[in-house]
Design a binder for these strands. Structure first.
Lengths: 223, 223
DNA sequence: GCGAATTAGTCACTTTCTGTGACTAAAGTC
DNA sequence: GACTTTAGTCACAGAAAGTGACTAATTCGC
């Protein structure tokens, strides 16, 4: 990548930037000229005094020309897995953009996560971690909304959840849950998508949520 | 701390080691001789080639003489907040031990998380992150069991959940959910705790879980 | 010894939530 | 105008959660 000024720096910031392309998740990769793998996740070495998320944001700006709709740290990766550079530890960030409005700079390409080229072991672990983070935080953070444009139909939102969860959802149940959670509000616009009845457009409704006052749910997955 | 060999190292591993003392959460702090704050979370600079979790485990061993019952990375902290040393970035680990069996080496003390002494800003952020991680992963990882001895009564388990969740639970609901999740198995031991009927002892039952096959739950908390 | 107090463990009832199929509505296609 | 397609809603059955009351086994006070 760029800023390889200090070859001895011991940590990097790596960016797993994801989007939804059609019905597949995709990840942004940068073409490498000098490293062993032909492609890699964008990464930067923080400049002196630069915060970690600032470095992640810089990597995103270099690729997109704008800030992602969502950015969140995944964790620090090291522990023996090889990185594109000789860096000991890499702090990975997950970032999301809606595919509709994203335009890529030269040297960057979207790859479907199901069909990635060879990546360094450490970066492959980061991609793995990023997809797990998405699934696990889907019900705590507005992940799905950050992958959609500002307004969307409820069918589009449902399809996004189906993509992220990897399973079909029942329309009536989905909408009932959505209503109960006060997550969206209708706009006065409608969209006619070729055939079929036009759909109303909605927008995400960030709001002070009253904490769910449920008891324990042992929906555990762990061994 | 110790191993201050390379003052120029740019990242550390910091350990937020927690336990349940009575009905309060407590955290392990190490007394400082030279740093600005009198107390700090134990931290280490990874030795060359040492993995991040190995460094966290080393910090735990130095304090306890044994490995924690649970260890998990929380994330990397930097972003301007001051650390005990001049280190740029610190990778924080959450670790758990049952209070009953933990014995501390000299220079280490438990503090209730509600009543901590002055800590460096970065370490305070880590403690904050650790408590959030505990709450958010309580239903995905055996957090409560790692804070209890190998065998325990169901009342003790319920009290642990009440402590971690910060709210009372109904006994019948708690046990019903526990049964449905196949999380514990009875031993043939009973414990008489002074007055009242003796309680059967249970142990944690790690097991291949069948994935919860539920739909979406918009139990969101986010703004 | 015996009743009160205390803690464990279970049951049964009510309320709430979820899964699901069927229904109506509004557009385009032929 | 009949048929197809997508949006949006309803209503019912079944499952799950909230809750109070009940039985069980022990210690304490007298």
């Amino acid at each position: 990548m760029r800023d390889r000024s200090s070859k001895s720096a011991s940590y990097s910031v790596d960016l797993v930037l994801m989007t939804a392309m059609g019905d597949k998740l995709a990840i942004l990769l940068a073409r490498n000229s000098s490293e062993r793998e032909r492609w890699s996740v964008p990464w930067r070495i923080p400049q002196s005094g630069e915060a970690l998320d600032a470095a992640a944001n810089r990597a995103a700006h270099d690729a997109l020309g704008e800030s992602p709709a969502w950015t969140e740290q995944i964790g620090a990766f090291g522990d023996g897995k090889r990185h594109p550079s000789e860096i000991d530890v890499s702090v990975a960030y997950l970032a999301l953009v809606p595919h509709e409005t994203a335009t890529l700079r030269a040297g960057y390409t979207w790859f479907q996560v199901a069909d990635l080229p060879a990546l360094s072991p450490r970066q492959r672990a980061m991609v793995e971690g990023a997809t797990q983070t998405i699934q696990s935080r889907l019900d705590q953070a507005p992940i799905a909304f950050r992958l959609l444009p500002a307004t969307f139909t409820l069918s589009e939102l449902q399809q996004m959840y189906e993509l992220l969860l990897g399973k079909r959802l029942h329309k009536a149940s989905f909408r009932r849950a959505l209503q109960a959670a006060w997550l969206v509000e209708p706009t006065d616009e409608w969209r006619s998508e070729g055939r079929g009845r036009p759909a109303q457009l909605f927008r995400y409704l960030p709001k002070k949520r009253r904490r769910a006052h449920r008891g324990v749910r042992f929906d555990f997955l762990y061994p």
